[in-house]
Nucleic acid binder design. Structure first.
Length: 513
DNA sequence: TAACGAATAT
DNA sequence: TATATTCGTT
């Protein structure tokens, strides 16, 4: 079909002049449509209308068909046959929802109840626009091209958007909004991708290899990188920094480490894509030291021995994909600091700890424990009494059981509500759940400031421990409940133990296995 | 030079 | 506060 230049240019008065195929006996409908400046062609017979549509679909933009109450099936036949050619609006006096549904199900773009009002009719053009933009991409029928062009020009004015054939624009304001947002997002993405390599170059020197290895795909234990505020990003030199730093926005992201095996629920990947992975960008990767991850960390430290535990070795043992030595070093630093808070470096405490360890080993032999696979762990228990230097402030971390939400991710959640346990101090044995937990560290321990014990007492404790290796450490702990003792004993395949020594074992070596 | 670890920055 | 980054030291 040949169109004049005028045809192909903007349809200034759109939707006036919309060509409507009307299949309705009532003259009233026609006049209403014409009053809205639509060009109406009326048919009284379905087959007639259908043949007209089939013959030259370009002659119409939209069809309005009344449901033939005396012969519904005829209407539906027409609808089915013509829906692909023209957007078809069904109209009826029938207010039955079933009729409406049937019409829509059969392909009607809308169902309007009679009587038709200008309100109802004024928006029918939307279906035409929808078809123009959503049907067949570039192969829009000739009659719809002017519609499309017209709408495109209007959208361009409003939104300054570029619309091309490959990316059909939505026809409603709402969709345009969505489209605009998507468009912006895409633009951001591409900017990011463009910048990424450059920024990488700039920052590469420090963590070569390591930072590049961050990979959040599902490896063994992998990392989900959340990106920190770009502000943290170090630019090349102090000179030209501040400019685009803000651009990063506040995507307070961090890194999560997931076990690949079973953790089906991975709520973390909020980035809805691999943006974080692929474009490591100039953002700093923040490791989320979840309980799980920290546990691995402690196990590695445990395995190496606290003195031999260095970042690189810990990293090796942890086998967590994406974790860097720097991450580990940082965490180790914190770990040590917390230990130090509990374990002042004066001789008394060293001796005390050492003696605890000795005691534990001796006790293990004594009890015939065969757990050589489990390395020795000399980490102190949080808040252990007597380990603070006189006058020292007891450790403030972790905070004295604040609301759970404030706890660190790995915060140990003991089965005993009063137990303020924490994995920082504990050796992290594999079976954390459903087995044995240290006796509730309540009462004297948690309510009395640790620094009540002075050095003299510590010395005394040390001597006592050394001299009586078989005896429990005077930790000031309450004895465990009989249940927990029995549970633990049975877990260790110890069937019968003198009742006195049972509590000694547990008391003397909480969490030490 | 790479790794460590304390200090410092974010 | 937690974690990252820097920087002097080994």
């Amino acid at each position: 079909m040949v169109f004049t230049a005028n045809d192909l240019s903007k349809w200034e008065s759109f939707p006036k002049g919309l060509r409507v195929l009307l299949l309705d006996s009532a003259a009233e409908t026609r006049s209403k449509l014409e009053s809205m400046d639509y060009i109406v062609t009326t048919f009284s017979d379905e087959s007639e209308a259908l043949s007209a549509v089939v013959k030259s679909p370009e002659s119409f933009h939209i069809a309005i068909v009344e449901v033939n109450t005396s012969a519904e099936d005829e209407s539906f036949k027409y609808l089915e046959a013509a829906k692909g050619l023209l957007p078809t609006i069904m109209i009826s006096d029938d207010h039955c929802i079933a009729t409406t549904m049937k019409c829509i199900a059969l392909g009607a773009v809308e169902f309007l109840q009679k009587p038709l009002s200008p309100e109802k009719l004024k928006n029918i053009w939307q279906h035409v626009v929808h078809k123009a933009f959503n049907d067949g991409g570039a192969s829009v029928s000739e009659s719809l091209k002017p519609v499309k062009d017209s709408v495109v020009s209007m959208i361009n004015i409003d939104t300054n958007m570029t619309i091309d054939e490959k990316d059909p624009a939505p026809s409603t304001p709402q969709l345009r909004q969505v489209s605009r947002l998507l468009d912006q997002e895409n633009r951001n993405c591409s900017v990011e991708n463009v910048n990424s390599p450059t920024e990488k170059e700039n920052t590469e020197d420090h963590d070569i290899g390591e930072s590049k290895s961050v990979d959040t795909t599902n490896h063994e234990d992998n990392v989900i990188v959340k990106e920190e505020n770009g502000d943290g990003e170090k630019e090349e030199e102090q000179g030209q920094t501040e400019e685009h730093k803000q651009e990063e926005g506040e995507t307070g992201d961090s890194v999560n480490f997931n076990k690949k095996e079973d953790e089906t629920n991975k709520p973390i990947n909020k980035s809805s894509g691999n943006k974080n992975l692929s474009s490591n960008k100039a953002s700093r990767k923040k490791v989320d030291w979840t309980q799980e991850l920290h546990k691995k960390f402690v196990q590695a430290v445990e395995q190496l021995g606290v003195d031999q535990a260095i970042p690189s070795r810990i990293l090796e043992l942890m086998k967590v994909d994406g974790l860097t030595r720097h991450n580990v070093a940082s965490h180790l630093q914190k770990f040590r600091m917390h230990r130090r808070n509990i374990l002042p470096k004066d001789d008394h405490n060293h001796r005390w700890i050492q003696s605890r360890e000795n005691h534990r080993q001796i006790q293990r032999q004594y009890n015939g424990f065969q757990q050589q696979h489990r390395p020795v762990m000399a980490y102190p228990v949080w808040g252990l009494p007597g380990v603070h230097p006189p006058g020292a402030v007891p450790p403030l971390w972790p905070p004295a059981l604040p609301s759970a939400g404030q706890l660190p991710p790995w915060h140990f959640k003991p089965p005993y509500p009063t137990l303020n346990g924490n994995t920082w101090g504990y050796p992290v044995g594999p079976p954390v759940t459903g087995t044995f937990f240290p006796p509730p560290i309540t009462g004297t321990f948690s309510t009395h400031p640790a620094n009540q014990l002075d050095e003299e007492m510590i010395d005394q404790v040390v001597k006592e421990v050394i001299s009586k290796p078989g005896m429990p450490l005077p930790l000031g702990l309450k004895p465990p409940s009989p249940e927990s003792v029995l549970t633990e004993l049975s877990r260790q395949d110890i069937s019968a133990v003198p009742s006195s020594s049972a509590s000694c074992q547990i008391n003397g070596s909480p969490r030490l296995r």
